[in-house]
């Protein structure tokens, strides 16, 4: 592994420095993205366990995703993409933000983890005919302009027999209280304005979008934050954070 600055022709040195600083911020477990770092194990365990049982791989292995092609759409700094690659998957990670992609590339290079990062959108990837065993659609639908269009593109990229994971926030009064007032204003976990309540998506809306695109929900779980343990745990309550697993018939 080399520590040399990545060679890029399209961006200047000042930008590389800015991206490096941002990369350290994304990956600083005690920093601005602490909540995502804390949240990560529960999401990863959910993904791993369901992928292993669906594809018949061993969850005990450190490379259970070998042979699987995964798309991480809206990958941010690569907090999910890197673990997926470490577990042995071939990972394409996309984000519409050039900053996020550069930041993620710098970190992956530093850690020596192979991830194919692309500055692009779900629609453009679908258009290009990309196909994946698994599409990870995590904390994205609440940020996109048109949920139905976005879901259509994501579903189109799932191979027959493949899976899609959707994680998002429900549109309930409780979600307003906890995810916006609590997380952004009281605890200061997220920058103010990170989320807007009217863009939150209900499980029923996702079910409908999935069904309209040839997929169906096979599992769902709530994810709840235990304040005393400072830990996220799977829960039956889907009023705030939740995850849905959908399958495409083979």
């Amino acid at each position: 592994m080399t520590k040399a600055a990545p060679q890029r022709t399209t961006i200047d040195d000042a930008e590389v420095a800015r991206f490096s600083a941002l990369s350290r911020e994304w990956w600083n477990p005690a920093g601005k993205f602490r909540v995502l770092h804390k949240f990560n194990p529960v999401r990863l365990a959910y993904i791993r366990d369901h992928v292993c049982s669906h594809f018949g791989h061993s969850p005990q292995s450190s490379k259970p995703f070998e042979g699987l092609r995964i798309l991480d759409i809206g990958c941010g700094g690569g907090l999910i993409a890197e673990p997926m690659a470490r577990l042995g998957a071939e990972v394409v990670a996309a984000d519409a933000s050039r900053t996020n992609i550069e930041v993620a590339k710098i970190h992956a290079e530093e850690s020596g983890v192979p991830v194919d990062y692309r500055e692009t959108t779900a629609e453009a990837l679908a258009e290009a005919g990309e196909q994946f065993d698994i599409v990870l659609n995590l904390e994205v639908v609440e940020h996109v302009a048109d949920v139905n269009l976005f879901m259509e593109a994501c579903c189109a990229m799932v191979k027959p027999g493949g899976l899609m994971f959707v994680a998002t926030i429900n549109r309930t009064p409780k979600a307003f209280a906890l995810a916006i007032v609590g997380a952004e204003y009281v605890l200061g976990w997220l920058p103010k304005g990170t989320h807007s309540w009217d863009k939150f998506v209900t499980p029923a809306e996702l079910d409908e979008a999935l069904a309209g695109n040839g997929m169906h929900r096979i599992d769902q779980t709530g994810v709840f934050y235990n304040v005393l343990m400072d830990q996220w745990r799977p829960a039956r309550d889907m009023d705030v954070n939740y995850m849905i697993l959908a399958a495409k018939p083979a």
Partner: peptide, 16 residues
């Protein structure tokens, strides 16, 4: 457990 999730075992969030 960290390695089986692809998580960096040296991350302080795990070590906490």
């Amino acid at each position: 457990d960290s390695l089986r999730l692809g998580i960096d075992p040296g991350a302080v969030t795990q070590l906490e």
